[in-house]
């Protein structure tokens, strides 16, 4: 899943970026409001983590601009302002969630995952398809009860496909949601990772779950 992190305090920004990436998210980061707004308007993000007190363009202004332009990206607001009025103001301005600093990093990850699930209308953290089970909270994958070890990138790709199960997903969409903005786009990298996933998920005797729609992309479903 692709996250945009807009935070001005460099140590926090760098750390959250690293932690979120290690948690399996593709993360783009912006250090001020102007760069953050530009990125938010340009990219397809699953969640935007937005610090309210930003230089150049205030976080509330970014939120307002996103909603005015019709962008429905889920926004998680981070702030040191902890009064009830501040929270109400933030939520009324279009934020989907509100987290007051300081907070536990695990809580941030959990809230981001919850927002991602909301993005794809999935309330259950466990995604199921045929005999495939993906626990998005524990970040574990099992097929027919057998645990499957995946790399962070493979897991991110599978989770994205599972969240859009039954729908054809283009390579561009996969790229936008699984890879970071600055990552070098290579023509076959998505195909390579799809191949890795197929080898790990499919076993002799079990039906394939990832299907290719030539000229369109990929689809995760029980029957091809």
């Amino acid at each position: 899943m692709h996250i945009l992190l807009i935070e001005d305090y460099a140590p926090t920004r760098e750390t959250l970026e690293q932690g979120l990436r290690e948690a399996g998210f593709a993360v783009d980061a912006a250090a001020d409001g102007r760069a953050g707004l530009r990125a938010a308007m340009a990219g397809e993000y699953d969640v935007i983590i937005l610090d309210l007190m930003l230089p150049l363009v205030d976080g509330m202004a970014i939120l307002g601009e996103l909603r005015r332009k019709g962008r429905q990206t889920h926004v998680l607001v981070l702030t040191a302002k902890d009064t009830l009025e501040d929270r109400v103001k933030g939520l009324n301005a279009g934020a989907d969630d509100y987290l007051v600093k300081p907070f536990a990093f695990k809580e941030l990850v959990a809230r981001v995952r919850a927002l991602v699930r909301r993005q794809y209308q999935a309330k259950d953290p466990v995604l199921r398809l045929a005999d495939l089970t993906i626990d998005t909270a524990a970040r574990t994958v099992a097929r027919a009860g057998r645990m499957i070890g995946l790399t962070a990138r493979e897991y991110a790709l599978l989770e994205f496909l599972a969240s859009r199960a039954g729908t054809v997903v283009t390579r561009t969409e996969i790229w936008e949601h699984v890879y970071e903005f600055n990552a070098m786009a290579e023509s076959n990298v998505v195909d390579v990772y799809i191949g890795h996933l197929r080898r790990k998920l499919d076993r002799p005797g079990s039906p394939p779950l990832i299907h290719t729609r030539r000229g369109h992309g990929y689809i995760l479903q029980k029957d091809g």
Binding site: D8, A10, D32, M53, P55, L56, V57, D58
Partner: peptide, 8 residues
């Protein structure tokens, strides 16, 4: 400067 905190 802009009612927001920044380190830049």
């Amino acid at each position: 400067g802009d009612a927001a905190r920044a380190g830049v």
